[in-house]
Amino acid sequence: MQIFVKGLTGKTTTLEVEPSDTIENVKAKIQDKTGLPPDQQRLIFAGKQLEDGRTLSDYNIQKESTLHIVWR
Score class of each variant (00 low, 15 high):
Asp52Arg: 04
Thr55Ser: 07
Arg72Ala: 14
Lys48Ala: 10
Ile3Ser: 01
Lys6Gly: 04
Thr22Ile: 05
Ala46Asn: 15
Glu51His: 08
Glu51Arg: 07
Lys11His: 14
Arg42Cys: 12
Pro37Cys: 07
Asp32Phe: 11
Leu50Ile: 04
Thr22Gln: 04
Gln41Thr: 15
Ile23Gln: 01
Trp71Gln: 11
Gln40Cys: 10
Phe4Leu: 06
Lys29Leu: 09
Phe45Trp: 09
Gln40Val: 09
Ile23Ser: 02
Pro19Tyr: 06
Val17Thr: 03
Glu18Tyr: 15
Lys11Glu: 14
Ile69Asn: 06
Phe4Ile: 06
Asn25Thr: 15
Lys29Gly: 03
Thr14Asn: 06
Thr13Asp: 08
Thr34Ser: 06
Leu36Phe: 10
Thr66Lys: 04
Gly7Lys: 04
Phe45Pro: 00
Gly7Gln: 09
Ala28Arg: 15
Arg54Lys: 14
Tyr59Ser: 02
Arg54Tyr: 13
Asn25Phe: 12
Gln31His: 15
Thr66Phe: 07
Ile61Trp: 01
Ile44Cys: 10
Thr12Pro: 09
Val5Glu: 01
Val70Asn: 07
His68Ile: 14
Val5Trp: 02
Gln62Asp: 08
Thr9Arg: 12
Asn25Gln: 13
Gln31Gly: 08
Val26Asn: 00
Leu8Trp: 14
Leu67Glu: 00
Ser57Asn: 10
Asp39Met: 09
Trp71Pro: 12
Tyr59Phe: 03
Leu43Ser: 00
Ala46Trp: 08
Gln40Asp: 07
Gly35Arg: 05
Gly47Ala: 04
Thr55Lys: 10
Phe4Lys: 06
Lys48Ile: 14
Gly10Ser: 07
Arg72Gly: 12
Lys27Leu: 06
Arg42Asp: 11
Gly47Pro: 01
Gln41Glu: 02
Pro38Phe: 12
Lys48Asn: 10
Thr13Ala: 08
Gln41Asn: 05
Val5Lys: 01
Val26Asp: 00
Thr66Ala: 04
Asp21Ile: 05
Asp58Arg: 02
Leu50Cys: 03
Lys63Phe: 07
Gly47Glu: 04
Lys48Tyr: 09
Gln31Ser: 12
Lys48Phe: 10
Ile30Asn: 01
Leu43Lys: 00
Ala46His: 14
Val17Lys: 00
Gly7Val: 09
Tyr59Gly: 01
Gln62Leu: 10
Phe45Lys: 02
Ile44Gly: 03
Ser65Cys: 05
Leu8Phe: 13
Val26Ala: 02
Thr12Glu: 08
Met1Cys: 03
Arg42Thr: 14
Glu51Ile: 08
Ile44Gln: 06
Val70Asp: 08
Trp71Asp: 08
Gly35Cys: 05
Lys48Met: 13
Ser65Ile: 04
Val5Phe: 06
Gln41His: 08
Ala28Met: 14
Ala28Gln: 14
Gln49Glu: 15
Thr22Cys: 03
Ile30Cys: 02
Ser57Tyr: 09
Gln2Cys: 07
Ile44His: 09
Asp32Glu: 14
Gln2Ser: 09
Asp52His: 06
Glu18Arg: 14
Pro37Tyr: 07
Gln31Val: 04
Asn60Met: 08
Glu16Ser: 12
Leu50Ser: 00
